[in-house]
Amino acid sequence: MSYLLNPEVIINQIINGLTIGGIYALMALGYTLVYGILFMINFAHGEIFMFGSFGGFAALTYFVNSGFADAHPGFSIIIAFLVAMIISSVLGALLERIAYRPLRNAPRLAPLISAIGASIFLQNVMMLIIKARMQVYPDIIPEKFIEIGGVSISYFQIFIILGSIFLMVGLYLFIQKTKTGKAMRAVAEDREAASLMGIDVNRIILTTFVIGSALAGAAGVMVGIYYTQINHMMGFIPGIKAFTAAVLGGIGNVAGAMLGGFFLGLAEAFGVLFMPAEYKDVIAFGLLVLVLIFRPRGILGEVVSERT
């Protein structure tokens, strides 16, 4: 086991864990934002992420075929991110309007079932579009590496870690500093009181879905560029892992979701060192079980009074 405590291995695993953790964190934010306001789990969030990934894929493929990507590789990736975020936001907004808003005052189980239905529906829509074949993101920018001793870091990994932190800081500032952010916090605190104070609750809820979905769309393109393979089922496992991350950090808590995402990524990367690699998923879901038993409100979660 001594080689496992090799500093090079540890640094590399930190980078591996932070990379996947950043993606989990971006997705976990979508779960947590919606939960904070509506007290419902949006199980179609993984599919919003998947649609974003395919949106970015369509944009990049178009740029490669038209030759635009050869001339402006960086610019095409930025546009791919925008396309993905727009597609995901529109999809998130549509879901809210069609699948969740009519059930807002229904018992809690109803929107949950509606979310699961939406998730299956969206998977099948994409399956019909892509003929159920795995798609491969084009290699627009050749992957470069920084090597220091035995540590190898890919520019893609740095890009994902910094990109996800950048988006999270942006979100945090948005929630803390803007008027809409303040309104979101108010709605999360007490929906009726907020509406009595003149806040348009429907608009705020829609905004929340749009923001959470846009982050998922960005995560989708990151996954596409980094792992290259995408398919119609790609949202399922990351969706559940991100949900785990949100619960780990304390669902409903924005900072907790970020922390939970990175924590889960690191736990997976380091768990592999001490256990056979096939137990990677066991580590993630084992953690979920432990948290639910010993600290159900999560790392940063506060006790929320049950509302009916």
């Binding site: 590399n12 792992y227 768990g271 690699a277």
Partner: peptide
Amino acid sequence: IEGITRGDKDFTPVLTKIKPL
């Protein structure tokens, strides 16, 4: 000898584990 899961996309942890060997 290490196992991976079908459908998983991230094999960097196990490869990092193998690398110092």
